[in-house]
């Protein structure tokens, strides 16, 4: 199988270890991975603001990087960016190539549970108490877990993967699917509410004795860690790929 690795802009710059973990993890399972080096961003920062004009520029750049690749999937270790590609990404003309590119873009956890159907990571040990933070985009956009608003069978794909890790303790916090308040540009344009939501999220972890917060979305964690560090808690934050690949941390 051949995939293209989609590395969101903030991961490239702030969390290179997450992209490394993702790449190594995919390689471990004998997947041929190519990395388009001119990629920048999915266009979410401008698209979320309703700015179609500037989104078009970013989307064009994304399409130029990915639409002509001969790959089975485009894998991204970030639910919210993948959701942007799959469900929005409408500022440029929807050519056949663009729609095909969008359709084969997939989030990392779902790539493992749904495509590779690999959920056994019992060769890895992580002797800590963790909480899972699935981002809103991953939950309500990509359905990586069941939605608490829906009376539907309960599942959690991230937990399915992490459950197999040796010595791990997964705890459910009081409001597992409550938005942490990152919300992209919202986190600075609506600073007071965003910070309050982040503080409440961090309190929920602390109240439940969590050591590590693990997520398929680093953007939420960037915000949560920012709040947590400011409040001087001992919480640590990791991307799910870092655990599944046993590093780099």
């Amino acid at each position: 199988m051949k995939v293209a690795l989609f590395v969101p802009c903030y991961i490239d710059l702030i969390y290179p270890e997450v992209a490394i973990a993702t790449l190594e993890l995919l390689e471990k399972y004998n997947i041929e991975v190519i990395v388009p080096l001119n990629q920048t961003c999915c266009g979410q920062p401008t698209a979320n603001e309703g700015d179609q004009e500037n989104s078009a520029k970013i989307e064009k750049a994304f399409a130029e990087n990915f639409q002509d690749l001969d790959v089975d999937y485009i894998v991204g270790p970030a639910g919210s960016c993948v959701k942007q590609i799959r469900q929005h990404f409408d500022a440029i003309p929807q050519t056949e190539k663009v729609t095909a590119m969008r359709a084969k873009t997939i989030e990392l956890v779902q790539f493992f549970t749904d495509v590779l159907k690999i959920t056994d990571f019992s060769n890895i040990s992580f002797p800590h108490t963790i909480a899972i933070h699935n981002s809103c985009s991953s939950i309500r956009g990509l359905h990586i877990t069941s939605r608490s608003e829906w009376m539907e069978p309960r599942y959690n794909k991230t937990e399915e993967l992490l459950n197999s890790i040796k010595d791990i303790t997964i705890k459910h916090i009081d409001r597992p699917d409550e938005c942490c308040g990152f919300g992209g540009t919202f986190c600075v344009t609506d600073e007071a509410v965003s910070a309050k939501m982040g503080q409440d999220k961090v309190s929920d972890y602390v109240r439940n004795g969590i050591e590590y917060v693990v997520s398929p979305d680093m953007s939420c964690l960037m915000h949560q860690k920012g709040v947590s560090d400011k409040e001087k808690t001992n919480l640590k934050f990791l991307h799910v790929a870092q655990i599944l690949n046993n590093g780099p941390f």
Partner: peptide
């Protein structure tokens, strides 16, 4: 419309 984190709930 900007007073939303777009969580979708």
């Amino acid at each position: 419309p900007f007073h939303s984190s777009l969580c979708g709930s």
